[in-house]
Nucleic acid binder design. Structure first.
Lengths: 197, 197
DNA sequence: GGAGGATCTGTAACCCGGTTAAAGTTTGCC
DNA sequence: GGCAAACTTTAACCGGGTTACAGATCCTCC
């Protein structure tokens, strides 16, 4: 109240900025460690990398994709994508299919085993987050969601100068994602548009 | 308003949880990509990894450390820490010093060049975040900070069963960090306590 | 309608950072 | 004083990334 009409920055002596920097660093690591890597280890028999599970999630939720699209989605080179696909194919979590339409391409298709793994992983993520959100009142939860979203979309909009960095945002298999509007130049979206009829 | 007295979960049909999962995933990647890796590339002449810059930051802000402490702090094995140290020593960003007290240990000490790099990096991080926070009113900024903090501390408290995962939280070179209270069993803190007199 | 360039995937060789196993020093205890 | 313990480093390996290049297929154009 006393300082509610300060300019957005400055008066705080960067205190807020330093605090947000630190917290978002910890959050970033905690999310990846607790809500992703650990749950992957618990879910998959063989050890999978986050890239590999995101790849599976993409083709599970969004249908068949070409290797080039996968590479753009993961933000890696085509050979790197190919090696990830090799591993997932060995584990029978996906299949390579050569489409008749253009036999240069290779199409990746989820297998039942792969789909089951993705579903199990997503269920575990929900279960893991549940007790965390229980600590928030409904209003707080909505406000958390709103502010997280505003923070990340602003960050991406303001700081994404180069068009090359891919955030593996997965804004694409979940229709109403707010990030989508910001990432018009996302390498995945470009690749996907290019290969769509 | 209409649903403000729902139970924390359930009524929402997991909608909030799914949304938070997705946003926190994107946030996690965006923070690492935009506020860390990219700024490291812009700051350092040679290419450094996030681990390496965190190592430098630790000994720059918190004084000399032994190799074992560094390994615990980074959450990696001692050989991995040693290799990171090799690289930073080659770049003259830190020095190895054998303390007289116990010559089995190796003490890592920041060099002026290393300190300058850390300061430049931190300044860049602040500058990068500034325009993002400018999009928030002061109240929103404080609320963002509060909710981020509550989210991450709850996540760590609720989900950290095993004592082994290190979040590179850096709760240690910044005195008043709220994460500190949650991570009593942090491997870094244990190592640090053990080697303190 | 075939030659040749473009496009897509996969292979080869390499790099970097991680791991475990084991070796090298130094210390402390009996 | 010898031997176990502690700490760091070296060695050998692994996984996932990169670039350069090879192979296959398609498209264009003469």
């Amino acid at each position: 109240m006393i300082d509610s009409n300060r300019p957005p920055f400055g008066g705080n002596g960067n205190h807020l900025a330093r605090r947000v920097l630190r917290i978002s660093h910890v959050l970033s690591n905690a999310v990846q460690e607790i809500l992703e890597k650990r749950l992957i280890r618990e879910t998959a028999e063989a050890s999978l990398s986050p890239s590999q599970i995101h790849l599976l999630k993409l083709i599970s939720m969004n249908g068949d994709h070409f290797v080039g699209e996968i590479a753009a989605f993961l933000g890696v080179s085509a050979p790197a994508a190919s090696k990830n696909i090799d591993k997932l194919a060995r584990l029978e979590l996906l299949r390579r299919v050569t489409p008749e339409r253009d036999r240069r391409n290779t199409c990746l298709r989820i297998t039942p085993k792969g789909r089951a793994l993705v579903e199990e992983y997503e269920a575990r993520r929900l279960r893991a987050l549940e007790p965390v959100l229980d600590a928030f009142t409904p209003e707080e939860g909505r406000e958390l969601s709103r502010l997280l979203e505003k923070f990340v979309t602003t960050l991406i909009r303001v700081e994404t100068i180069d068009t090359r960095s891919c955030l593996r945002c997965g804004a694409f298999y979940e229709g109403e994602c707010p990030v989508r509007g910001v990432t018009g130049h996302c390498p995945y979206e470009r690749a996907r548009r290019a290969s769509m009829p």
